[in-house]
Design a protein around this nucleic acid. Structure first.
Lengths: 242, 242
DNA sequence: CGGGCTTTTGACGCCGCTCAAAGATAGTGG
DNA sequence: CCACTATCTTTGAGCGGCGTCAAAAGCCCG
């Protein structure tokens, strides 16, 4: 299945209205954006944009999860970002991206044609201010990721990843009891700088220790949260929302 | 030696005028910035700001090199950024940083008081636009770094690091023949997610193979550039400015 | 010349990768 | 409805790259 045009949703009813690039916009500004927006859908596994492709649009993720990844010549792959609803795809002032963007689940984007968007951007501080904020947040996340990739053990990487899923589910209000693993073992490995075998082994180990329990291969519960936190290698309460 | 106030330099004569956060500003805007700026100097090894400190200023690096790093409880450390002249320190909308900022060499900063700067930022699209651009560039660099940390071998990490120094010296116009290693082995290790012993061994290995040659412990030349590129693990011409 | 720091070098062991195969699950078509 | 296949996951055996620990060598500055 290829790019699907989904039906337009009113911005006022949009689930990401208050977190996306348009978060700070007032009604007039939203109306301007509304004129140049369209919805596009992708099915799980589809590539949204290849590294180096000319981008006709910039977009916000409305539903689903997308991955950003880079590949070395010999095939080694590293995920360099995970896009969740409200995250932004695109770079003002540049027409290409230096990584592949792939739909990890079914994904719906709210897309703006690049040129009109950039024109709007220049005239609308509310958008560029929000864009700075979002870029800085992503930079913070990337830096935490660098610590994980450079210094943490396989066990700590897995524990940190799970802890991240827990935190996110709290933020989303998708409160317990069953959490979804939104990625395959291979994708998790690509995210954590591991091999899929090591990911599998570490998950099994945490299961054996009674830290987590699987109801399904893609659904699990944290059964010993203190042990999980301990396994992350971070400070006891490092940034955790409890 | 503690924070030194250096003498003010006219913006028009500033070496980073065209690359820093003020790059897009017109004369009026520069004048506004000039009113709230001051220079501060730090000696090599001094900590410019600790993780979590309240920041009274945001700054641009004018001279020297500073490092951004994070530490896990048990002491493991990962560098998460390297600040060169024109790079920016600070986050609009937040008063603390989540990493330590340390002067790797003697450093001079052009600092702005945080509150007046943020007021200016809200009214001056030229500044926030430039800030988006710089944040995005840093994000790109962080993503390349994630690939290095997650997937590259020790040899490839070292080669990539040296290649980066080479590229930068070209950009700076500091053209050959002797390049300075701006960091100690330990700092390089912290940057690359290695131990200092491994850094030393890999440098020795490249020296033995005739890829690089040291004139001094902190100065070297690339003697076989093709071999160096080959050792990085990147595409043959991956982003190299020749 | 002496003390502290940085760097080099060596020996050794372990964590995580590689290679291999079997088991589980979901989707497909007969 | 079930066999068939493709994909994802688990598990095992073995090995090697890099970390750890230790000590010596080089360098800087008083």
């Amino acid at each position: 299945m290829n790019i699907q045009l989904a039906e337009r949703v009113k911005c006022s009813e949009c689930p990401i209205r208050h977190r996306a690039v348009c978060a700070r916009c007032d009604d007039d500004e939203i109306e301007m954006l509304d004129k140049i927006k369209s919805y596009r859908s992708f099915t799980a596994g589809e590539t949204i944009s290849w590294r180096g492709d000319e981008l006709s649009h910039v977009s916000s993720v409305v539903h689903g999860i997308a991955t950003l990844s880079k590949t070395l010549d010999d095939g080694r792959m590293q995920m360099v970002g995970l896009l969740l609803p409200s995250d932004f795809i695109g770079r003002p002032g540049r027409t290409t991206l230096d990584f592949d963007v792939v739909a990890a689940s079914d994904v719906t984007l709210c897309s703006f044609e690049r040129k009109p968007f950039e024109r709007l951007l220049a005239e609308t501080p509310h958008i560029s201010q929000r864009l700075v904020e979002m870029a800085m947040d992503e930079l913070d996340a990337a830096r935490d990721w660098m610590v994980l990739l450079g210094r943490k053990t396989a066990r700590e990487k897995i524990a940190t990843f799970i802890q991240m899923l827990v935190q996110r589910s709290h933020v989303d209000g998708t409160d317990l009891p069953d959490l979804a693993l939104p990625l395959t073992r291979e994708e998790i490995a690509s995210y954590l700088g591991l091999t899929l075998e090591t990911v599998s082994r570490q998950l099994t180990q945490l299961k054996k220790e009674g830290v987590i329990a699987f109801s399904d291969r893609r659904k699990f519960t944290v059964t010993d949260h203190a042990a999980l936190l301990d396994a992350t290698g971070d400070d006891a309460d490092g940034g955790v929302i409890v």
